[in-house]
Nucleic acid binder design. Sequence first.
DNA 1: GATGAATGAGTATTCATTCAT
DNA 2: GATGAATGAATACTCATTCAT
Lengths: 330, 330, 330, 330
Amino acid sequence: MKKKDAFLELLGGKSNKLFAEVGRYFSADGSFHEEEFRKSLRASLSSIKEHSSDSTAFSTNADEWLTAKLNEIINYLDEKGMPEASSSLFKAAVDECARIGLPNVSLPAVHLNAILSYIPDKKPVKHKNNTSDMKTRIMDAALKKFAGDGYHQSTIDDVAELAGVGKGSVYRYFKSKDDLLTSLIVDRSEEIFKRINQIFSNEMDIVEQIQAAIHDWIRFIADNSDLYGLIQSNIQIHDTNTRDMFFDHVFSKLPMLKERVISLNRLNQIRTSNLTFDTMFFGSFGYVDWVFYKWLRSGKVYNLMDEVPIIIEILLHGSIKEIVDTQPGK
Amino acid sequence: MKKKDAFLELLGGKSNKLFAEVGRYFSADGSFHEEEFRKSLRASLSSIKEHSSDSTAFSTNADEWLTAKLNEIINYLDEKGMPEASSSLFKAAVDECARIGLPNVSLPAVHLNAILSYIPDKKPVKHKNNTSDMKTRIMDAALKKFAGDGYHQSTIDDVAELAGVGKGSVYRYFKSKDDLLTSLIVDRSEEIFKRINQIFSNEMDIVEQIQAAIHDWIRFIADNSDLYGLIQSNIQIHDTNTRDMFFDHVFSKLPMLKERVISLNRLNQIRTSNLTFDTMFFGSFGYVDWVFYKWLRSGKVYNLMDEVPIIIEILLHGSIKEIVDTQPGK
Amino acid sequence: MKKKDAFLELLGGKSNKLFAEVGRYFSADGSFHEEEFRKSLRASLSSIKEHSSDSTAFSTNADEWLTAKLNEIINYLDEKGMPEASSSLFKAAVDECARIGLPNVSLPAVHLNAILSYIPDKKPVKHKNNTSDMKTRIMDAALKKFAGDGYHQSTIDDVAELAGVGKGSVYRYFKSKDDLLTSLIVDRSEEIFKRINQIFSNEMDIVEQIQAAIHDWIRFIADNSDLYGLIQSNIQIHDTNTRDMFFDHVFSKLPMLKERVISLNRLNQIRTSNLTFDTMFFGSFGYVDWVFYKWLRSGKVYNLMDEVPIIIEILLHGSIKEIVDTQPGK
Amino acid sequence: MKKKDAFLELLGGKSNKLFAEVGRYFSADGSFHEEEFRKSLRASLSSIKEHSSDSTAFSTNADEWLTAKLNEIINYLDEKGMPEASSSLFKAAVDECARIGLPNVSLPAVHLNAILSYIPDKKPVKHKNNTSDMKTRIMDAALKKFAGDGYHQSTIDDVAELAGVGKGSVYRYFKSKDDLLTSLIVDRSEEIFKRINQIFSNEMDIVEQIQAAIHDWIRFIADNSDLYGLIQSNIQIHDTNTRDMFFDHVFSKLPMLKERVISLNRLNQIRTSNLTFDTMFFGSFGYVDWVFYKWLRSGKVYNLMDEVPIIIEILLHGSIKEIVDTQPGK
DNA sequence: GATGAATGAGTATTCATTCAT
DNA sequence: GATGAATGAATACTCATTCAT
């Protein structure tokens, strides 16, 4: 939307009344006097309230009046080539409505569309690759040290020395020892979330997807046994611990996992009634968690992936053999 | 009521007249010259008496004057950040009134309120429990503290204080903080081994026994959630941690558990081939462990025992519904 | 007031109506049901409000009713030998009045007197003389070190070593390095406040008193030059510094100094109009402060007390000689 | 709007129907399947169109249905702690409405408010002042920071950031942090020496000159309160402090000040015998110093220059009123 | 010249453990 | 036996200063 010729603008224009009104809300340089606008709005809404028989009538009248008013002004601003001003104005109007308790606000869809276009789509995250080398070195060292000697037994000096950097550098990249641990867990678990998300993004049979997810999950913890061991060691920081931290991260990264699984459960193959889903979900994590633990304590003498079929079989069909009888073909 | 900045107090102030009056009643250090104040009060009241027609008029006039006077001074003291001084002053005034026979004394409610706040409430007397022996008291306190705040966040001072014993006494019964934790877990887990042992001692059907064991196990950890939470928190001591400690203890106490279960599996009802038994054993512990964890993090808002049937059902028959029957082709 | 024979009490008593009312406010064991009493009070006051023509009438009626009601109940409690219960009851009543906005509350002076007797006069401060040895040693060392090397240049290790105690012991007696400094200043200046207070407590001529105060003040800072040097060095802690700290302490210890001086200025000998007093007060401190500083920088080669007459002369009569002419006798 | 605890989110939840619907629009990781949502929306709107008698009825029905639907989902996302997701969803809905020709869209004001909060406000652009040279910028910043937060509390990073230069540049112009402070004080005090020197250069009456000097001095410290506050804060560097530094500088710059003053005292108007001059000189500085301090601590709420006449009056003629005349007997 | 990433010496503070009373 | 004052080893964290780019 190109700005019109400013001089022509100056000559032409709307009715003087609208001029006067809009003139109150804006400086000559186009900056918005929000408080002035809100004051005027409140005055008008109060007046409407007084003239309305009850609160329902007020809602209807106010919504109607406001839609017309905003429409008029936003149209005007649009013609002036100031569409960006609309968003501030509309924001103020909506906020005022929310304060005054007006339930709904409506606006022509095209205008709303234009205003909403000012919402940025995504924040581009800057990856400074030059710094990441040192950060990675520190994290690698910390993971090794924490997993080996335990978090509380490891000192920042140890980590810095192992990473081959100065102690101060650790504090350049991480606010505190706690932050180092947290960042470690968060950063190093990114990969698995992507994988799980991928699995549940396609439209495969739900049971197959669960099998795939368990398989991938176990592969991930086997490949990252230091990391997962650290999570398991359940170090307490303030009032959370690594397990809490990890789970909160899982759920914040996969906030729609439950919904997605349920939506995929079209044939109603898995138990999703009541609390059962949550129990199953946690229980399965726990099942794998302790099988992993057994493997770790054994000194990793066997291949954890060998356990995958058994785990999947038991989690899906139970520990009891009887069911085998009904599936002789298997 | 926070004391104002003493410096700002000095700078501000009332009229010199009030200054001079208050200055007569108080030393520079704020101590109250009660006799001076009483003398002045008596003089004023006498003067009022003389100018009053009868005793009723005197009462009214005196009350009015006194209310105003006290109000003025107490306000002043309040602004000075010396509300404590008000109580002495008010006490003296009331006493003087009682002596002179003035029937009632009135004062603004807010001031009275402030003055009365200096009347201490009765303190509840602490009962020092001397019945249970010291070691138990220390362990109880340690369990509570460690489970509540975490092992590393708890200090020996905390534990000793909670137990109501001297810090030195902790070291009479336990070699070190680590030893206290270890003893705690070992000592408090005795009971469950007895229970598990009992269950597998009788000749019930193996499936029923497993069901009973799961049931009892969950009951135990629900009843001893502090203890189990502590085990879960997986504190690292030297090169073991609480989970290792607990498991080592389980296996040292129940060395024939696996053999016993397999011997009971006469009808070959459960999977015990190869590695399957160990996997099932650990996995099942893990399943319960994480369902417990879910319960703990929820704030124990529901009854953990309600989960028992679901857990047993899934562990024995799997997460898949008897969908097999409705899909015979699979 | 001795408790009457409980059994006789049980038999006798007031009208059943009062019994019933008081019975609602107290348990059989005499514990006070505050909320019940407040509820009843609120109900009565609301009822009075409804029947009062305006808010003034309400105040009068409510005060009258409340006085009678409290009088009745407190009398009753007194007779029962439960005078301590009166204070809780009265506190609740006053608080309720404050909440409801009732301006004044009046009560028979004798009752008020009894209730106020529950306000403790002074909190007895416990001086553990056995610990004070170590505390004193630490403070002595800290004063020496801080004054000599500067606060920021001194470490806790330095102080502990100089005091000949373990570093941990410093933290047993002082929360932090900051606290050590603050305590030092507060503790070591006690003496001078007592002295100044004494001076202004007697009824000497105000000019003589000021002279005495300046004299004593200079003697104090000369005798405690380390301490005063420390105050002068104006170390910043958080958002205050030692000078602020000291002054706040002066004013909190001598909150009525200004009032007292003004009250003593009967013959209007010194300037106390408007801001003049504060200016004079601070200015005089500053005058002495810098003369002290000059002395300190000179290496204390002369006797600071020799300056006292000059300082007093200038502060009282100015730097100009002319005034000498009007006092030829001097 | 703080993100809820992700864990608790998982446990709670809505009906399975809503789960399944939302699960279709979002991936497990919360990313929005816009096309899926639009398709579903279009389908529903078509269906509404078919069942509506005319276009007005359609508008009404569609708006009502859409408001309810969006409300439901946005509420759900809100409870999940995913308010950001609402904006994408709402944007898509509005766009779809605009395409389909639905005139208005309404939504509860509170939701609109939340969505609109994602429109970023315009950020004020920082003007990097490149006109003044670097050294000045650094000193300005240092003065501001040191005076505001205290020398020890300010870091070189703070100063560099405030000055808008790199940390390394500070070290190009100043050898060390100490050097920065010293240079600051020396450099910025130049002006006052010139002023003082000027005053005592002319041949005015000595008393008038002293008055002028006091006046100018106070104006200088009032105008340069940051600088003078810094001098007052008396920061210790090695074995001197800012006050020493300043005074040494005064005397090195005005080595003949004393001689000049005495030479001007032809009529022997002021006291210059013995030590008196030095005492007067320092004392007067101190007097002003503390009056300045009082002003600073008051938050500069009044005009320091208003104090000048009082200060001059007292320093020249003393604190005692000309009471001498009214009490000739003294 | 300007920059800011890297550094490590320096320090306040904690707390398990000891031991005299 | 019980206590808690005294201790100092251990450690997270800060920030002035350097120096490669």
